[in-house]
Write a protein that binds this DNA or RNA. Structure first.
Lengths: 186, 186
DNA sequence: TGGGTCATGTAACCTGTTACATGATTAG
DNA sequence: CTAATCATGTAACAGGTTACATGACCCA
């Protein structure tokens, strides 16, 4: 998966591992986090597969740059991946795993838990609304402005998801509060 | 993560690897998929960590059962995990990774893509509404009916998520259609 | 007689995480 | 003087996937 993300970025233009790492951390982290070490390792795989070539650029003072460029075969692989359809709605969710087993903890603690989730969701939403991932910085990077519509769609997903997440957490909280109030009413 | 899911199940009662595997595949797969091989491997880790003990139960005709039971230390670990708060709203999303790079494909193909996503979302939603993960079968398994509320919350999340997913896919589709119609109107 | 269920796993591989290592330049 | 930025990675480990292997019993 990360391989294809890197191919997608290289398809916009040649980049060094460092730049790819920065892009993931600064702009794509809300839907994909990647470790620096993994990026450098995957770049070696891309090279081995013939999907990218590299070129050392001498610098003085700083370490040399290792600039990667996508090949024709890399572009084919990128397109193959984009066309393949293996779409699953449900994704692995640590959140739901934890929710599922919460019966082990007290009502009060769980009310607190969902309250915290709602708060975290609200912070995430606010963050996204105030400083949406820097679409403009990609626009400069890429000649074709048509891409921006797809970038915005991922942001839109983030906003809609965050809202749903908050609604869900609040609903859960209310259900537990109702349960608690039933008991204490006796 | 899977370790803790297994611990959570063992906390309901002793189980064999086969039963754990069935439970994940039949009932928890909408938020966590697990390979049979991984379950058997993780059970060895639980044992090694002192979180579970096992007992061979002789059978004739069928292979012997290997029944696992949670230990006190395993219960502590389960509770430690439930109490720890490491909640991230955003999760790694292959869906968004693919969406982000769709500028590489044609408008028409992408309209088709989002249309398919909306359909897949609708099928998932229908499936969940018609046959929600067998909450009843857990209820039999577990003495404490209070757990059911948390199980239902995970199902509720599934329903809300599926709806949001469909709305998003349809919105994306409409945006692209509008773009196409602008161009063809010239 | 053929497929499904019960029931166990191993081996190899791929992907992601954590920890470590180096070193110059630049801005506060 | 110190922290951040630029820029490269390696090693070990943890977690997840794919493929393979075995074998009896039961139902249609």
């Amino acid at each position: 998966m990360l391989k294809h993300g890197i191919l997608g970025l290289l398809n916009y233009g040649s980049m060094t591992g460092y730049e790819i790492d920065r892009t993931f951390k600064d702009s794509l982290s809300y839907f994909w986090s990647a470790q620096t070490s993994q990026i450098y390792r995957e770049l070696q795989v891309l090279k081995k597969n013939g999907w990218a070539t590299n070129e050392i650029i001498k610098q003085n003072g700083k370490p040399d740059k290792n600039l990667f460029t996508i090949t024709e075969s890399g572009k084919e692989e990128l397109n193959r991946w984009l066309m393949e359809d293996k779409t699953e709605v449900a994704a692995r969710s640590p959140l739901l795993m934890k929710t599922f087993f919460r019966g082990e903890r007290s009502l009060e603690e769980n009310i607190e838990y969902f309250s915290k989730l709602a708060g975290i969701g609200a912070d995430f939403l606010k963050g996204m609304q105030n400083e949406p991932p820097e679409i403009d910085s990609y626009s400069k990077m890429v000649e074709n402005p048509a891409n921006a519509i797809y970038w915005k769609m991922t942001v839109e997903y983030g906003l809609m998801y965050a809202q749903m997440y908050i609604n869900w957490a609040e609903k859960c909280k209310k259900e537990l509060e109702a349960l608690r109030d039933e008991h204490t009413a006796d």
